[in-house]
Design a protein around this nucleic acid. Structure first.
Lengths: 194, 194
DNA sequence: CGTCTATTTGAATGTACTCAAAAGCGGTGG
DNA sequence: CCACCGCTTTTGAGTACATTCAAATAGACG
């Protein structure tokens, strides 16, 4: 397994000694998921955050009518978790599964807390990641309340051109909060215009 | 000015010595805002996070049609900021103003970073706060995509009973993402049922 | 009081959803 | 290599939830 991607991503925010790198690596568990395999299930407690190195995962919840709502995609270089469950230690609301055959590192909350104590720089690293998540989540919420479905689709295309190419439309529809049928109609509209 | 509320809130997550408490207090600037006064304007850079001790603030963005969308309310004991602007040092998208006469502490990002270096426990404190924000923002997003306006209203009533009583309906409508007219109709519906 | 803003009510409209059916596409086994 | 199966995408008609616009009423504040 190759630690380059995750160490690079850490190095963007904090500087580690060789020993600290090894400490970090020692708390990471390798894991492979085949397409459609699950990393987390709703209503179960969740101890792990995952850093994706290959493939793509997603987190989503299922509402009482059985519809999926995708909260996040995680292509290589991204972290994904049911953070609510990880921090409260209560059963979560999210499912996390692989959209394609994927590889990732798992980090348990207890190991994460140990490394916070051993190497406080990691507290900084995750603080920064988490700050960025808050900001991204807030932007997404504002997009959701102030933009039409068509605009949200265009924002998605611009922001995640790679995902655009690889994901089925159905997944994109779920992420931007419309039915697959309606997204299909939106795309037809956009084609006519251009 | 009274530091009890903010020190209590810190003490929920980290334990400080008297000296560390004083260091923290030394980076806080007192500020009072009268109703409708602004703490932050969209398109301006934002260096400060605010901890509210009296009154209530809100953050919101204005869309291109001139409609306000409230992102957050901050009653006493809550932090509020345009975090996106604070962390990127770029102009923000949010306005923050006082819904009533309010009192708060300001903390600049540079002072915050200084105290992260001086007292790493604060890195932990804000990491935890930020994790909770991510989780709350994600829950809100999921509520938004999976619930009807009526359900979102009921969730709001249950989650923020205090705000319910004190805020004008118009502000609540903006927070849950409906027009004030429609919220009025929703309430009429609910009354008929019960 | 009088003015300004917030709330309610109603009618017309629009955006997005539901349900149904057909067409496209990809993988798998014969 | 083709035929079939399951899943995704497209298209259409009817519907529903929420908005817009307008007007009336109620409340808050100086």
């Amino acid at each position: 397994m190759n630690y380059d991607l995750i160490l690079e991503s850490v190095a963007k925010h904090i500087r580690l000694s060789k020993k600290e790198e090894e400490q970090f690596i020692s708390i990471l568990q390798e894991k492979k998921l085949r397409k459609k395999q699950f990393l987390a299930h709703a209503n179960e407690q969740n101890k792990y955050s995952a850093f994706v190195t290959k493939g793509c995962l997603r987190s989503y919840s299922i509402d009482r009518n059985g519809f999926e709502h995708i909260l996040q995609f995680a292509p290589p270089g991204w972290w994904i978790a049911d953070l609510g469950s990880v921090i409260t230690k209560l059963p979560g609301q999210l499912n996390i599964d692989a959209l394609e055959d994927s590889e990732l590192f798992l980090m348990s909350r207890s190991d994460q807390e140990k490394i916070f104590d051993a190497v406080p720089k990691f507290e900084r690293f995750f603080r920064i990641l988490t700050e960025n998540s808050v900001s991204a989540a807030n932007n997404r919420l504002l997009d959701y309340v102030s933009l039409s479905a068509q605009e949200r689709y265009l924002v998605f295309c611009k922001r995640y051109p790679m995902l655009m190419k690889t994901l089925p439309q159905k997944q994109i529809a779920s992420y931007i909060g419309v039915t697959p049928e309606f997204l299909s109609k939106l795309k037809a509209e956009l084609l006519k215009k251009s």
